[in-house]
Design a binder for these strands. Sequence first.
DNA 1: CTTGGGTGTAAGAAGAATCTGACATGTGAC
DNA 2: GTCACATGTCAGATTCTTCTTACACCCAAG
Lengths: 118, 118
Amino acid sequence: MSAIETPTGDELLKILTALGNPHRMRIVAALTQGRNYVSRLAREIGMSRPLLHMHLQRLEAAGLVVGSLELSDSGKAMKFFEVAPFACALTPQAVAEAAGTLTDQDQDENQHGKARTQ
Amino acid sequence: MSAIETPTGDELLKILTALGNPHRMRIVAALTQGRNYVSRLAREIGMSRPLLHMHLQRLEAAGLVVGSLELSDSGKAMKFFEVAPFACALTPQAVAEAAGTLTDQDQDENQHGKARTQ
DNA sequence: CTTGGGTGTAAGAAGAATCTGACATGTGAC
DNA sequence: GTCACATGTCAGATTCTTCTTACACCCAAG
């Protein structure tokens, strides 16, 4: 799991745009110290909850964090998030390799199939 | 040179936002195959020259490419670009470590000194 | 002097990302 | 019922990024 992965162009692009944001970097940093649920995390890092929700969605879409909706002892629904054990190397060769598999201008929700534009 | 570096938060952020763009990824990929000058590169990858100029500026500001203004045999000024041998690992720990050294809201050009806003 | 190829840059439009505020929902405790 | 605390989502404003177009300059060749 801690091996250096070589994601596709679109995956790497999603990872980079997800991490290329100071708030999201700090979110990942906070989750590295342990899992947490949304409202508490929002309080701790001083961010509005809807905003944190959006950032977590972006991080989860990139596969950098994983969230699971659990029920606390009292029955309250709480969404816990934790970091995914991602690891990818950022080198010119890795970027060049990934750039070759870029689908250019459609980042749709077709990561299960392979519906090319052409 | 090919060791895994651990940049500061602001540096990593600049690297990630620089690479988190399909055009810039393709520019890095094109420059991996050899140095090139701006107008020719713009022709090859099918991009307007001012736009490529902006992207190259962004990549150079992040330290991912280096440009040098040279004079051709005929005396024409040509700006050559080549990739810098960057290498950094993208792991939760690296992100957490970098997030600790983020200056939050000022991304000014004060990477030489330490001129804080306040 | 005009043409062709190189450089850089600035203004403004278009589009995407970010952020706030308000709303709707559910559950347990008082 | 009302409060506190959790969830999610939406509309709109704002800000940032991206991109085009147009301009400026320099040098060599015809």
